[in-house]
């Protein structure tokens, strides 16, 4: 760097140091949430998945009201009609509007998906959290951890179909039974992830510091451990919701889930199995398409979120 050409002779005198403040923070601050959103927005697939999800959710709310037919109104004279301006997705053998039924079915699928995932989340985080936190904390702690992990392992080993069939026999088939059946075994995955995370996090010095300062166990879990694993929990949710939706459709398809006449993507697909060869493709196509799109949307969004939460990505 060459000497500046302008005359600087007069500047050779002590500077006013009061105006200097070298402990200031120069870099603009970006909160963790904003950073994650910025990274997700940069990922086109994730944005597409998110938009698709919003559209599906909006249609499940408003879709049935956009046509004059209600989902369960039968009109035998109008059975098996193809796509038209009157019936956008055609009608089924009982003359019910497939558009209306598809979005009514979406409600069931989404409700079951979200409800099962949230119950998984609550039980999984609680059990995983307690188990991971108590592990290595004296004899009692290890005993609690062992007990909880044995329960998880046993539940993990039971095929969920068996549980579902058993429950369907014992209880009235329907949405509630379905949610219970899916959650009974569903939470173990979340519990395992949470436990693993907690085992890692609680070695961190900030957790030791909190413990030394007398912070209670519950507060350590709620203020220190959970906020630092929110990302992983949310990513896991974006993958458990679609698998619950798929399980619902699959069970309904088998006749083990939601019962007719309630519309669900699974029951609609089941109903249309017999007529698929006679050319009424729309009866199977639309519920099938919706299942695929929903799964895709969740997975694309979840993947993007996972990448965005990875601190190594820029």
């Amino acid at each position: 760097m060459s000497q500046p050409q302008i005359n600087i002779d007069h500047l050779f005198r002590p500077a006013d140091k009061e105006s200097l403040h070298s402990d200031k923070i120069a870099r603009p601050y970006e909160s963790y949430g904003k950073e994650v959103i910025r990274k997700v927005v940069k990922n086109k697939m994730a944005v597409f998945g998110f938009v698709l999800l919003v559209v599906i959710i909006l249609l499940s709310i408003f879709g049935p009201h956009m046509v004059s037919h209600t989902p369960s109104k039968q009109n035998l004279t109008q059975g098996n009609l193809p796509l038209s301006s009157e019936h956008w997705f055609g009608t089924d053998d009982l003359g019910r509007d497939v558009w209306a039924r598809t979005w009514a079915g979406a409600r069931i699928s989404l409700v079951i998906g979200f409800a099962a995932a949230i119950i998984d989340l609550i039980i999984g985080v609680f059990v995983g959290g307690v188990s991971g936190y108590m592990a290595g904390r004296g004899k009692t702690g290890d005993r609690i951890d062992n007990l909880l992990m044995r329960i998880v392992e046993v539940l993990f080993g039971i095929p969920y179909l068996l549980v579902v069939i058993l429950l369907m026999v014992m209880m009235k088939p329907g949405i509630t039974t379905m949610i219970i059946a899916l959650s009974i075994t569903g939470w173990v995955g979340m519990a395992r992830i949470v436990r693993g995370q907690i085992l890692q996090l609680k070695q961190q010095e900030f957790v030791l510091a909190a413990e030394k300062l007398g912070t209670s166990h519950a507060k350590i879990i709620i203020r220190h451990l959970l906020p630092n694993m929110m990302g992983i929990i949310i990513v896991n949710l974006t993958f458990t919701i679609p698998s619950a939706i798929f399980a619902e459709s699959f069970l309904s398809f088998l006749g083990l889930g939601v019962q007719a006449p309630t519309a669900s993507w699974g029951t609609m697909a089941n109903d249309s199995l017999g007529v698929i060869l006679s050319g009424q493709w729309w009866r199977l196509f639309f519920p099938g398409l919706m299942i695929s799109l929903t799964m895709f949307a969740f997975n694309a969004f979840g993947d993007g979120l996972q990448d965005a939460l990875d601190p190594k990505s820029k």
Binding site: E205, L208, A209, G214, S216, K219, R223
Partner: peptide, 26 residues
């Protein structure tokens, strides 16, 4: 206790004021 790693010993999700007041609260 004062810890070794100044990054790992502060909870990244908590504001500095709350970190310092942790013992006061407890």
């Amino acid at each position: 206790m004062i810890f070794q790693d100044p990054t790992a010993s502060l909870n990244p999700r908590m504001k500095v004021g709350d970190i310092i007041a942790e013992g006061i609260d407890a």
